[in-house]
């Protein structure tokens, strides 16, 4: 795992400050590509959160909404999102070719996140409920996906169990 570059330290320093992230966690995020499928605001928010954390993001849909490949590349350069926002975007060459290498997880209505097979299989994760706000769904989808990459899935599932099995919202 290579050290953070000076540009990455400047860009992601506030994430490094988080106890659960640190330098090692940030490097994991930078090296953990996600595939995100879906439509609508929840999808847009999930992609924005994942890309902003520095992870390479591969989109699977005809992008629209507020997501724009150029805009994303501007605020999340390490996400590798460039060019016209249509179809598959992101650093395709950097990703495994076989879909079998990904865990596909429905993390909310309209959001499916593919986690690298290097992460633990998130078989026990319950998706957000349809009546959650789309922004909540998308943000939590990204949060759950990032926790698997950071190796925090056990703590997350314990926390979920204490809330009755839901990983989603607080009223």
């Amino acid at each position: 795992m290579s050290a953070l570059t000076e540009a990455q330290v400047q860009r992601y320093g506030r994430q490094v400050l988080l106890r659960e992230v640190g330098g090692r966690g940030q490097r994991r995020l930078l090296e953990a590509p996600f595939v995100v499928e879906g439509t609508g605001p929840a999808f847009d928010v999930a992609v924005a959160y994942l890309a902003a954390s520095g992870s390479p993001v591969r989109l699977r849909r005809d992008a629209g909404g507020f997501l724009d490949g150029v805009a994303l590349a501007d605020f999340a350069p390490d996400a590798g999102l460039e060019g016209p926002p249509a179809g598959w975007l992101g650093p395709l060459e950097a990703l495994p070719r076989a879909d079998a290498a990904w865990h596909r997880v429905a993390l909310g209505p309209g959001v499916v996140v593919g986690l690298s097979a290097h992460a633990p299989a998130p078989t026990d994760v319950a998706p957000a409920e349809a009546d959650d706000e789309p922004v909540t769904q998308g943000a939590l989808a990204a949060l759950v996906a990032q926790r698997f990459v950071l190796g925090l899935e056990t703590a997350m599932l314990v926390e979920l169990g204490a809330r009755g099995g839901r990983w989603a919202r607080r009223r």
Partner: peptide, 13 residues
């Protein structure tokens, strides 16, 4: 701040 602690934290790691 906050780069003071960022630098130290990365070095400690």
């Amino acid at each position: 701040c906050p780069m003071t602690w960022v630098r130290v934290k990365l070095k400690l790691e």
